[in-house]
Structure formats: C-alpha cells, structure tokens
C-alpha cells in the first residue's frame, strides 16, 4: 500500500468540497429559492469553488513542524480565507446578499469546511487501521 500524503489529500479535499457544495447548494436552493431555475453552467460552479478551496490548503502547509495550536490557528485562517474568497467572487459577479442569506452562506461554508476535514480524518483513520493490523505481523516477521 502506497500512502501518497500530499497530493491525495488535495484530491480528497477537492472531491469532498465539490460534493459538499452540491448538497448544500441543492438544499439551500430548494428551501430558499424554489422558484429559481439554473442553466447548465451552474454544474461548473461546485468544481470551480472546489478547486479554489482546495488551493487554500496551502495555508496549512509549512516547512516547520507545526504544533497542534499552530495547526488549529492556520485552519481557522483557512476558513476565514475561504469565506472572504466566496463572498468576494460572488460580489464581483454581481450577487447581492440580504443579511439573512449572508449568515446562511457563512454557515454553509463552515459546515462544508468541517465536513471536508471529517472526510479526510476518516480516510486517515482507515489508513491507520490498516497500518496497525499489519504492524503486529511485521513485528513478528522482524523478530524471527
């Protein structure tokens, strides 16, 4: 089993973000704007934001080995950066938010953010489980 830490994390992140946006947008649209219909270009919005959001993962990259506190702080910065990016792009293309909608979008972004880290954590837990299973056998083989 080959563990490709760096790139696989970005791929998992991209897929999880895109899925999260699709679900969140679908639910929000259905409840808040049931009268609105979208054109086919709308299909490209979740992967586009998925890609941009994955790139913000660079915020948590560091040559230094970060402590847990430093990592949590950087993750918080990443969330703020994503919020600014999403609102910034939407304002640039002319979208306007009511306060209620702005809060809903902010919460949506936060939920997707937590969801993505949960998916990545689950993936790493699976890797750790497979490793632990093999470790005992490996130790037996080595002590022979």
């Amino acid at each position: 089993m080959r563990y490709q830490g760096f790139w696989s994390r970005y791929v998992v992140c991209f897929c999880a973000v895109t899925t999260g946006i699709c679900i969140a947008e679908g639910l929000m649209g259905e409840f808040l704007f049931p009268e609105i219909t979208l054109h086919f270009g709308a299909y490209l919005v979740p992967p586009a934001f998925g890609l941009l959001t994955s790139l913000t993962g660079l915020v948590v990259e560091s040559r230094k080995e970060l402590s847990v506190k430093q990592m949590l702080f950087r993750m918080f910065l990443q969330l703020i950066l994503i919020e600014i990016m999403v609102f910034g792009i939407n304002l640039l293309v002319g979208s306007r938010y009511t306060p209620k909608l702005a809060v809903a979008v902010m919460l949506e972004i936060a939920v997707i953010f937590v969801f993505v880290y949960f998916v990545m954590w689950r993936n790493e837990r699976r890797i750790a489980g497979a490793f632990n299973k093999r470790l005992a056998e490996w130790q037996k083989e080595q002590s022979r």
Binding site: V68, M75, Y117, M120, Q142
Partner: peptide, 16 residues
Amino acid sequence: NLMKLNSISPALNGRF
C-alpha cells in the same frame, strides 16, 4: 523504533 510501536492514530491534517 517500529518494534516498540504499539499503534498509530490520525492527528490533525495528515499527521499521525
């Protein structure tokens, strides 16, 4: 020393 390792668990952001 892997022979002294009991197990690993996921930590934050790709670390174990």
